[in-house]
Each structure stands twice: as structure tokens, then as C-alpha cells.
């Protein structure tokens, strides 16, 4: 760990907040992407069989 001096809380919380937001964005995008992809595959299968 580098010595952050008096502002350790500020710097670390800025990094934590930002990385958490970015992670949330990526996770949400992938989650929705997977769900839509599966739903579309189901629908296309129905279309072929039905």
C-alpha cells in the first residue's frame, strides 16, 4: 500500500465507489444480455417447431 497520508479515506472511498459502480454496470449489462439471449433462443426454437 502506498502512504496516502491524511487523505487515505477520501482516496480509497473514491476508488471503491467508482469501481463498484463500474462493476455494477458490467454485471447488470451481462446479466441482461444473457437473459435476453436465452429468451430469444427459446422464441426462435418455438418458431421453428411450432
Amino acid at each position: 500500500m502506498p502512504d496516502l497520508g491524511a487523505y487515505a479515506v477520501e482516496v480509497i472511498s473514491a476508488y471503491a465507489v467508482s469501481l463498484a459502480l463500474l462493476a455494477a454496470l458490467v454485471i447488470f449489462s451481462v446479466w441482461r444480455g444473457k437473459r435476453v439471449k436465452r429468451a430469444l433462443e427459446d422464441a426462435e426454437a418455438r418458431l421453428r417447431n411450432g
Partner: peptide, 27 residues
């Protein structure tokens, strides 16, 4: 790069969602 990657990925999702919507209408 993260922005471009996410836009690509999310646009793929939206294209699929739109196709899903069209299939739903047809059904």
C-alpha cells in the same frame, strides 16, 4: 475502450431484444 466494449455488448442485447419483440408480435 470500456465504453466502446459496453456499447457493443449492450447494442447486441438491444438487437436481440428487438427481435424478441418482433417474434412476440408475430406470435
Amino acid at each position: 475502450l470500456l465504453f466502446i466494449a459496453l456499447v457493443f455488448y449492450r447494442t447486441r442485447t438491444e438487437i436481440r431484444a428487438r427481435r424478441l419483440y418482433a417474434i412476440g408480435l408475430k406470435e
